[in-house]
Design a protein around this nucleic acid. Sequence first.
DNA 1: ATCTCATGAGACCGATCGGTATCGTGCGGG
DNA 2: CCCGCACGATACCGATCGGTCTCATGAGAT
Lengths: 202, 202
Amino acid sequence: MDRVSRQSRVAKLPPRERILDAAEELFSREGIKAVGVQAIANRAETTKMALYRHFATKDALVEEWLRIVAADYTAAFDQVEDAHPDEPRAQILGIARFIADGLPEISHRGCPFINSVAELPDRTHPARRLIEAHKAGQVRRLADLCARAGLPDPDEAAAEITFALEGAQVSTQNGSVERAGERLMRIVEAVLDRHSAPGAAR
Amino acid sequence: MDRVSRQSRVAKLPPRERILDAAEELFSREGIKAVGVQAIANRAETTKMALYRHFATKDALVEEWLRIVAADYTAAFDQVEDAHPDEPRAQILGIARFIADGLPEISHRGCPFINSVAELPDRTHPARRLIEAHKAGQVRRLADLCARAGLPDPDEAAAEITFALEGAQVSTQNGSVERAGERLMRIVEAVLDRHSAPGAAR
DNA sequence: ATCTCATGAGACCGATCGGTATCGTGCGGG
DNA sequence: CCCGCACGATACCGATCGGTCTCATGAGAT
């Protein structure tokens, strides 16, 4: 995610890095199918040949791009957890805050995973497998935090929080809900409260 | 939504209908960009020329397809509301039930609107405008029902329900959450309870 | 019986797709 | 010093893209 801010122009990085930067920019802005390898090479100020020297196929580049995005998310979540050691509730809220704060930037462009899955209907495609593994890992991670927070049904709580996180991104992308960030935070707090309330299991 | 079940083959419908049926099938299964007009014509057992006699461009066909899908959803919601006249809470739960019941069918294919937005990054594209208008209308509709149900903050409640509906579809598509339907229903019930509770405004 | 017009069939267009081959050049390590 | 190798530029490949054109045919209305 901090990969985007790199200036990437004057002090030229090696071609492979420039290609990945260009792919990040173009894939997340226009979509996978809408971007040709020539366009990526142009934006990376290199050539198609150089691209194919580092990546076997376009699909392999897509996969590597998604692998990096997933790693960035995971690293960001690690950082949030480290900021609140042994405070699972604060860690969950920190993750929600991280997504909420990202909404304005993501606005109308959308989550790269959600968008990419839409373009990868084949569940056996390596890139799609990567996304599904990443998302499943995030849900497990949330469930783990919920368990550590002492919630009696951590899987249910994690699922509810996940729905809210994904829904907030989708609804921001299509502009149907305003102030999605604040609402997202309120929802997550409410989920935590409801699940930790003693007799409130419906 | 019932358009899918049409047999559409032996007792041939007029070409325009067959083309729209083929578009529904292929666009929702493979995505917009992944499907060529030739493939649509083939599946509709007609020709590209016939297709272009009824639709000015591929984009126009995409737009018409989405218009029909949106109308189908709206009609389904109408039907749910009619089934529970003057019972806004039951109407809201009925809408959630409708989405929850659709999850297994949608499974791994995803919501056509969410998927299409991912392939339409240009917010001025007519098809994207149509989707955004539809989604905004659904949120307004939910907020209206929430208001009629006497909830003190109908916009907030509608946003929370919307997040849950969208999130459930996304998480079902990428396989990260099991039994999403049951969980969706529990969330919506909890949102209604929390917002109708007297002193519970945080 | 005839006229009309939507249809079906298929060739064709320029552009672009993902991917490959060729060749020149320049920089860095032995 | 010079040799190897990654790089850049360019041309090319077959396939497919969205979209157009021509023409034969067939069913319905008059």
